[in-house]
Amino acid sequence: MTDYAWLSEVRSMVGREYGRIYAWDEVNPAMVRQWCEAMGVDNPLYTDPEYAATTEFGEVVAPPAMLQAWCLEGMHMNNYPPGSTDENPYEVLGLIEAQGYPAVVAVNSELTFDRYVRMGEKLYYTTLIKEVSEEKATALGTGFFVTQVMSFFSEKPEGDEKVGELMFRVIKFKPANQPKPVEKSESAVPKIKRPKPGISDDTRFFWEGCEAGELRIQQCNSCNKLQHPPGPVCSHCHSFELGYHVSKGSGELYSFVVMHYPEVPPFDYPNPIGLIQLDEGVRLPAGLVGVEPSALEIGQRVQVEFHTFDDEMTLPLFRPVSA
């Protein structure tokens, strides 16, 4: 294969060892228990102190397969404990990507253990760039195998002790034949419609009211009280004699949420949804229109308006109005 000039910088990184990445917490039984629960591991050596006391270890120990978990950054990327290196052990991959090898065709890893890890130990690991292969040809394209080795240690006053090792290998490759996108006419792409609400005998009056431009709220004919969502019986007096009241559709924003993710077509995002307190005293959830999500405020006045979607479904939405 061709020996590119830029490979000299990549190969100069082989043998480089990056500094320590520390664990946030000491090895502890709470995290061991949660890991075992999540992974379906029921070995009492890891979670039962009475049983573990009868073994050669004399106490519970951490599952070996949990080794990598102790030094993970958590929910936020690169959020490592104080004292950890700020060097980037993956910069070699970035150099290869920059030369037109952006894809990953395969990865593999091997986790080996020197001994069990005990409660109270504090771990860290270092990363070694072990190898960058010659350019290899695959059925999908050409690329480079990059092998890294993470060595895990336990901090000891008498000298840190190695407890395990993780070998991680990835191939960064350049796709050989990229298929051309198939052009489709707009008419060939099916239009995604809004999901229709479930309509029953108890709620049909409400949706028929929307089609007629009326916000109908269920009302008991016995006690005259209102309720929403509609039900088969009055929640106040338990009467089955139910009708409806046509609301003026005015009220205030009792609460709201702004949906950002996941984005589900055909809805627009960000998608503000409000819980509306009608002047008649009942609350109902509905979409909000005509407002920037950042401008929403609890208590602001709103007014209903009816929007028809897909030429077949009319929904009550609420627009903020001036005081």
Rank of each mutant, 00 (worst) to 15 (best):
124 Y>H: 12
126 T>I: 11
127 T>G: 06
130 K>H: 09
130 K>E: 15
131 E>M: 04
133 S>P: 04
134 E>K: 06
136 K>Q: 13
138 T>M: 13
138 T>R: 15
139 A>G: 15
139 A>W: 03
141 G>F: 09
144 F>M: 04
145 F>D: 11
146 V>Y: 09
146 V>A: 12
147 T>E: 08
149 V>E: 14
149 V>A: 10
151 S>W: 07
156 K>E: 14
157 P>I: 14
158 E>C: 10
159 G>S: 12
161 E>C: 02
163 V>G: 05
163 V>T: 10
163 V>S: 07
170 V>D: 04
172 K>A: 02
174 K>V: 01
174 K>M: 05
175 P>I: 01
177 N>G: 06
179 P>Q: 13
182 V>Y: 05
182 V>N: 09
185 S>T: 14
188 A>W: 09
188 A>S: 13
189 V>W: 07
191 K>D: 03
197 P>V: 11
198 G>S: 06
200 S>E: 11
201 D>R: 12
202 D>F: 11
204 R>D: 02
212 A>D: 08
213 G>F: 08
213 G>E: 07
219 Q>D: 00
220 C>P: 01
229 P>W: 10
231 G>L: 11
232 P>D: 06
232 P>L: 02
233 V>Y: 08
235 S>H: 03
236 H>R: 03
237 C>P: 15
237 C>E: 08
238 H>A: 13
240 F>H: 06
240 F>G: 12
241 E>M: 00
244 Y>G: 00
245 H>P: 00
248 K>R: 14
249 G>N: 04
249 G>W: 04
250 S>G: 02
250 S>D: 06
251 G>F: 02
252 E>R: 12
254 Y>P: 00
254 Y>L: 09
255 S>F: 04
255 S>R: 05
255 S>A: 12
256 F>N: 04
258 V>I: 13
258 V>R: 08
